[in-house]
Amino acid sequence: MRAQRTLLVAAVALYGAGLPPARAETVSVKYRGPVDLKTFACDDISRSSFITRVCYDRAKQYMIIRLNSTYYHYCELPSAIFSALLEAPSMGAFYNERIKGSGLDGPFDCRTHQVPDY
């Protein structure tokens, strides 16, 4: 009972401080399944006709990217590459050249790199 009251007080304090309540979001990633995005920083992309959203977990160097309406994942992707993607004049061209790469196993393909647990 006391724990419930403490949780309620904390929730009211956050709401009163103008902070939105925490929301959980899970997306279905092709070749992986559901991933909870609570540790990711996500950006909706409006300047690309191909890339519509990017989510990155800096601590695990793990990127989830929505291409049109499908989410894909890339492993062991350095934060400098992620930042360069966001700043690229053409995000689609940068993605195709530097992240996806050519052939079946691009430079950050999760089939050849460590896939983080969530």
Rank of each mutant, 00 (worst) to 15 (best):
M1S: 07
A3N: 13
A3S: 12
Q4D: 13
Q4M: 07
L8Y: 12
V12H: 02
A13K: 08
L14F: 00
Y15P: 00
Y15G: 10
A17W: 05
G18L: 00
L19P: 00
L19S: 09
L19T: 06
P20H: 08
P20R: 10
P20A: 03
P21N: 03
R23I: 10
A24C: 13
A24P: 01
A24Q: 13
S28Q: 11
S28G: 05
V29I: 10
K30F: 11
K30G: 01
Y31G: 05
R32D: 05
G33N: 10
P34G: 10
P34E: 10
P34A: 11
D36C: 02
T39S: 13
T39P: 06
F40N: 06
D44I: 13
S49H: 15
F50W: 14
I51Q: 11
T52D: 01
R53E: 14
R53M: 06
A59V: 13
A59Y: 11
Y62W: 09
Y62M: 03
I64V: 15
R66M: 14
R66V: 06
R66S: 11
L67P: 00
N68K: 15
N68Y: 14
S69P: 00
S69H: 14
T70L: 07
Y71Q: 01
Y71S: 01
C75E: 08
C75D: 09
C75L: 09
C75H: 11
L77I: 04
L77T: 04
A80D: 12
F82S: 00
F82D: 04
A84W: 00
E87T: 08
A88C: 10
M91Y: 01
M91S: 00
M91L: 12
G92H: 12
A93P: 01
F94N: 00
Y95H: 03
N96A: 09
E97W: 01
E97A: 06
R98K: 15
R98L: 04
I99C: 04
I99T: 01
S102E: 14
D105M: 08
P107D: 11
D109E: 05
C110N: 04
R111L: 05
T112R: 09
T112N: 06
Q114D: 03
P116Q: 12
P116M: 06
D117R: 08
